[in-house]
């Protein structure tokens, strides 16, 4: 069981990022979310979602899903954004196991149902 992201449905509203961080911090912040609305290519209208799981980093791009095993050498042809969040230092997704009333918060709060349970 895991999180499934439809990047084409995503409207880049950041709700997932906010509630994921709330799950970790019990306050409103964007500090420790393991799911992040990717929005660094604003002029190109290019956006998607990053999700860190225990062993992989999932990049849900409009053109498709990319799954990168954490620890493997990065593709030298792909340039990281200067603002890339230190996702790899954050805790991986635990499907909000302690949030009994909600299940995964990003799924519950996504206004456009772009995130579902696989």
């Amino acid at each position: 069981m895991g999180i499934k992201i439809n990047a084409l449905k995503c409207t880049n509203c950041m709700a997932c990022e906010m509630v994921c961080s709330y799950h970790r911090d019990d306050g409103f912040a964007f500090l420790s979310a393991c799911i992040v609305a990717y929005r660094a290519r604003e002029k190109k209208d290019y956006f998607g979602v990053l999700l860190k799981e225990e062993e992989v980093l999932i990049v849900a791009r409009p053109e498709g899903l990319e799954i990168n095993k954490i620890g493997e050498e990065a593709d030298p042809d792909k340039k990281a954004d200067a603002s890339a969040k230190p996702m790899l230092l954050r805790e991986g997704c635990d499907l909000c196991e302690d949030m009994d009333d909600y299940g995964p918060m990003c799924i519950a709060f996504c206004p456009v149902d772009a995130i579902t349970l696989d």
Binding site: L8, T11, N12, C13, M14, A15, M18, R41, K44, D45, Y46, F47, R61, P62, E63, P111, V112
Partner: peptide, 25 residues
């Protein structure tokens, strides 16, 4: 696209010298 946590996407991007159907960056 939407403003922060806004359920309706109030913004629309128009591609003017690019294929609007383009999915990759």
């Amino acid at each position: 696209s939407a403003d922060y946590f806004t359920p309706y996407a109030t913004n629309t991007a128009l591609f003017l010298d690019e294929d609007p159907g383009l999915l990759p960056e």
